[in-house]
Amino acid sequence: MFFQQLINGLTTGSVYALIALGYTMIYGILGLINFAQGEIYMCGAFVAVLLLATGKVNFFLAVALGMGAAALLGVILERVAFRPLRGFHPLVPLISAIGASIFLQSLALLLFGPNDRPFPIQFAFTTIMIAGLPVSTLQMTILAAALGFMGLLIVFVRYTTYGKAIVACALDRDTARLMGINVDRMVSLTFLLGSALSGAAGIMMAIYYNATYPRMGLLPGLKAFSAAILGGVGSIPGAILGGLLLGVAESLGAAYISSGFKDAIAFAILILVLLLRPQGILRGRGD
């Protein structure tokens, strides 16, 4: 029972971590919360599911296109809702992003209707025994894929020129510009990467819960934000750690405290973190 809950928590937690990476990178470079991150996650899931439902697209291509659509949406969103408002009071872009989030959610509701869509293809996942403990291969696959994406992101940020340029912009935008870095392009790239990861997260959850619907991004988006704060906003390892911890806490809390309040656990943790250690576990840029 405990072990099972732990695995459940790690699975959802790894998905929260993927979304939290988007929040944390965008916060790192612009100092803003992208409120519509949950809708980008929803967009990735919808594009993949709709493509697969046509029956003509192979699974990996559908995933790639879903992530691509999410990335594109992220870049467009930055252009429309954030860039014109740079230099304004910080609450202006914040409210604009809230507007974008509501807009995308209700647009999806109009286009696709409120009902859950099952994932169009079936996988042959089973439960296997590892060291005497039952493990679902679906959960293992999601966990492995999420960790793989995180590994790729870390390698990109640490070892490539573009990755280093993003870090430079996050550290000091003006100095980065003086060093010849095209800051606007790096901001777009950050949105592209963060949104692609959120899109991948959306597809994973669409498979895991076998449901895709317009409001699916709301709670995971909020929880992922709590995860980013928990780990230390602006820190990439922090977002991963925060996501996994939050997933486990939520799963154990639902099992041992009360399942009716499952969705409240993340916010209770968020408020506690802000109260006791606002900079997060790994010191982020939040103050």
């Binding site: 409120f35 409240a264 209770a268 968020l270 606002p278 939040g286």
Partner: peptide, 22 residues
Amino acid sequence: TLRLKEDYLAIVTLGFGVIVDL
């Protein structure tokens, strides 16, 4: 929460709304 930056308050109040609803 009000010791922190404005965007934190937005998320915390949003979470508070969800908790109160629950």
